[in-house]
Design a protein around this nucleic acid. Structure first.
Length: 329
DNA sequence: CTTATTTGACCTAT
DNA sequence: ATAGGTCAAATAAG
């Protein structure tokens, strides 16, 4: 059981790596455009490095997330979106006032509803409920189907919060819910969403990994719905590499990689034969070591490239930040 | 017609 | 009184 300080440090490292990942992802197009004017070889090298960096980060974050969730719920598959689980905390339902009037006759619809809600709350207390938070740029892709049941303006936020429950609640009694809140960060592009999950899915058959929670055309101008329309649906694919093969149970951190980016990682033979980690079997630590090697390899290439072309400085800086993140981790 | 979303009302906790 | 979560009638879309 890791200490709380270690856990905080890990969360910080994950957040930092995720941030660098997003920066590279966002900046790769203008960078590639820039290198397009240098020469085709420069452009190819930049593209190769960016692709490798993104893929390495993708796998690394998958590993880190796997470590953060040592005992994932069977009914809660790892998110297949570009997301970071930042915090997991127990969340029992708040103690309710005693249902003193339960035995009384319920006459009005309001009273009936009140009784129904109290009963539901008490039932929730009996079951093991949980809550965890996910930060993602693709808030509606987590492998489950959700039905929206509410939307509220939350104090101190610029965007409304949308409430979802499991589509199969009525069929299976699944009590899983979540709410999605777009973060206020004005400079964030793409927008970042905080997704708070409540209760684990108990619907085993109904909650298949389908795609859209929204099967209908969204008509209003809610920014959250606008995000729905922009979702890229990519099947989970892991590159058949040394690193990933050892962790076939891991899902990539980000499923939005383009087909080009999903090509296998070309890890140098020297690295394959001489991984930084001691173990080569399916332990998480060896995977991370492998990733560190991969990053070192990338940075070495970047440093060499930076000497040849000043334009690589920005990439070199990104990779340096990335390496620092891994050192912290 | 069926199913999902929208949205104001309602409920509970603080 | 207020904020956050949920309900359910109205509405929209397939």
């Amino acid at each position: 059981m890791p200490a709380a300080a270690d856990e905080r440090e890990r969360e910080r490292a994950v957040a930092e790596v995720a941030q660098v990942y997003e920066r590279i992802k966002i900046q790769q197009q203008p960078l590639l455009f820039e290198f397009h004017h240098h020469s085709s070889s420069h452009h190819q090298l930049a593209q190769s490095l960016l692709t490798d960096a993104l893929r390495a980060l993708n796998v690394a974050l998958s590993v880190m997330k796997q470590q953060q969730q040592p005992s994932p719920a069977p009914a809660t598959p790892p998110p297949i979106t570009s997301s970071v689980v930042v915090k997991a905390e127990p969340r029992g339902l708040s103690p309710r006032s005693p249902a003193s009037a339960d035995s009384e006759a319920i006459a009005t619809p309001t009273e009936r509803r009140a009784k129904k809600r109290r009963s539901s709350a008490m039932e929730g207390n009996k079951t093991l409920s949980s809550s965890w938070v996910d930060f993602t740029i693709v808030p509606y892709e987590d492998g489950y189907e959700w039905r929206k049941y509410g939307e509220k303006k939350i104090n101190g936020t610029s965007y409304t919060r949308s409430y979802f429950r499991c589509t199969y609640k009525d069929d299976t009694g699944c009590m899983a819910t979540k709410h999605v809140q777009q973060k206020d960060s004005s400079s964030s592009d793409p927008p970042l969403f905080q997704v708070t999950y409540n209760n684990k899915h108990t619907c085993n058959n109904g909650c298949t990994a389908t795609t859209n929670s929204s099967k209908r055309v969204v008509t209003n101008n809610n920014p959250l719905n606008a995000s729905i329309m922009n979702i890229k649906l990519e099947p989970p694919v892991l590159p058949p590499t040394l690193v990933v093969q050892a962790y076939s149970d891991l899902r990539p951190f980000d499923q939005t990689l383009t087909p080009c980016q999903q090509e296998p990682i070309s890890i140098p033979v020297s690295m394959q034969q001489q991984p930084c980690g001691t173990a080569t079997s399916s332990t998480t630590s060896s995977s991370i070591s492998g990733e560190s090697c991969c990053e070192e390899y990338l940075v070495a290439q970047m440093a060499a490239a930076a000497e040849a072309s000043p334009g690589y400085d920005l990439l070199y800086e990104e990779l340096s930040i990335l390496c620092d993140s891994f050192k912290c981790y």
